[in-house]
């Protein structure tokens, strides 16, 4: 299940990472229009980013992040060919991770 897309670019000593994940991101507040029942919450809770095995950033998310989340961040260092790894875990315990090389 490849649910993560990563674009990482190093320029002037700073690496910009852009990532897209595919996830429904249900808040738990929305109602099913046909049955009137609440759709249970199902959203990513934690995202972590690693550069060559070292964690550079972790994010805690609530249900208020849009469906199919986009996240971008920058860090110092990082060279072309270095590995960037993004992993997420959701509130149902599902998880995924993806690795990509910096351009």
């Amino acid at each position: 299940m490849a649910s993560i897309k990563i674009r990482a670019k190093a320029k002037g000593g700073i690496t910009t990472v852009k990532t897209l994940m595919s996830h429904p991101m249900e808040t738990g507040l929305r109602k099913d229009k046909k049955t009137g029942e609440k759709i249970p919450a199902h959203h990513i809770t934690e995202v972590s980013a690693e550069h060559n095995g070292n964690v550079v950033m972790t994010a805690n998310w609530g249900g208020a992040i849009s469906k199919n989340p986009y996240l971008s961040f920058k860090f110092k260092g990082g060279a072309s060919g270095d590995k960037i790894k993004i992993s997420w875990v959701d509130n149902k315990g599902e998880s995924d991770s993806m690795e990509a090389a910096i351009k």
């Binding site: 700073i14 991101m25 808040t27 550069h51 964690v55 550079v56 950033m57 972790t58 994010a59 805690n60 249900g63 208020a64 992040i65 849009s66 989340p69 986009y70 996240l71 971008s72 961040f73 920058k74 860090f75 110092k76 260092g77």
Partner: peptide, 16 residues
């Protein structure tokens, strides 16, 4: 977001 010392103070995302 928890940023380590190598991070730039920059975050971009989409919220509801």
């Amino acid at each position: 977001y928890q940023l380590t010392s190598v991070c730039e103070a920059f975050v971009s995302t989409r919220i509801k």
